[in-house]
């Protein structure tokens, strides 16, 4: 690691002013991506601002059909929550036990790794991302590869999810890293069907063609008729874009079969 100044503010305001005053600062939440990156010397921030000591940013609360997850809530806590079983299931499959004990939802979605799990839920469960500055609709939040609607210095304080009538998350893990090669969250809320896909593209997205087909006929068979355009999908040594496209279909079917 290169040298940096470590800070551990106790309020959000303090965190933001540290960031504003830093030459090249970076927030640290769980550190599951940032710390390995620093160890590899692939980043050299001047200041690391740890959000871990700021009170009020953790916990899962349920209020009137909305589940609110604090930005610094560990994956393991969400995995143990009961309000949205599919969300708990998703959280229980992030990384490994140690990642779940340290990693946070805010850190995950602020990073916007194309293969992270949470983004599938953010786009599929009508989420609202609350930050120190504003609220952002889940569908507008992810903007590209490791890119989000967040501005410099903005901190994710909580994420609200709508409780669906039914939902399921299906994941095809990278055999080595356990990231999602493809992850699909299917949610049904009245007549509305949401299909959130992670791993396949530059960032999480809603598969609208699948959603339309499933809105007309909510059955696994309905997926078969949908052509999945994989031309812009990711490709690596574990899965070609074509295979990812195939998996989006397979996982969607399986998710539908679970909840149909």
């Amino acid at each position: 690691m290169y040298q940096f100044n470590y800070h551990r503010p106790s309020t959000l305001d303090e965190a933001r002013s540290l960031m504003a005053g830093a030459e090249d600062g970076v927030y640290l939440s769980g550190g599951m991506t940032l710390i390995p990156t620093l160890k590899q010397r692939l980043a050299s921030p001047s200041d690391v601002i740890d959000l871990g000591a700021i009170p009020g940013l953790t916990g899962v609360t349920v209020n009137d059909g909305t589940v609110s997850v604090g930005g610094m809530t560990r994956h393991s806590e969400v995995a143990a929550s009961e309000a949205i079983p599919a969300l708990a299931d998703l959280a229980s499959r992030i990384g490994d036990a140690h990642v779940r004990n340290r990693g946070t939802i805010g850190g995950s979605i602020a990073n916007s790794d194309p293969a992270a799990d949470y983004p599938a839920a953010v786009v599929a469960l009508g989420a609202t991302v609350h930050t120190t500055n504003r609220s952002i609709a889940g569908s507008d939040y992810f903007t590209g590869l490791f890119e989000t609607a967040l501005h410099d210095g903005e901190i994710v304080t909580s994420v609200d999810f709508c409780v669906p009538d039914a939902a399921a998350y299906e994941k095809f893990p990278n055999p080595a890293s356990r990231y999602a090669v493809v992850g699909v969250m299917v949610a049904r809320c009245g007549d509305c069907i949401c299909v959130g896909v992670t791993g396949a593209g530059a960032c999480a997205f809603r598969a609208t063609a699948l959603e339309e087909a499933l809105a007309a006929d909510f059955s696994p068979g309905a997926v078969d008729g949908v052509g999945i355009d994989h031309s812009e999908y990711n490709s690596d040594i574990h899965a070609s874009a074509e295979f990812r496209g195939h998996l989006v279909g397979v996982l969607t079917k399986r998710a539908v079969a679970t909840i149909a």
């Binding site: 990278n174 990711n234 490709s235």
Partner: peptide, 13 residues
Amino acid sequence: QIGSRLVDAAARK
């Protein structure tokens, strides 16, 4: 060595 999974996507972007 470390980032091969992201190379294509990053270059495309």
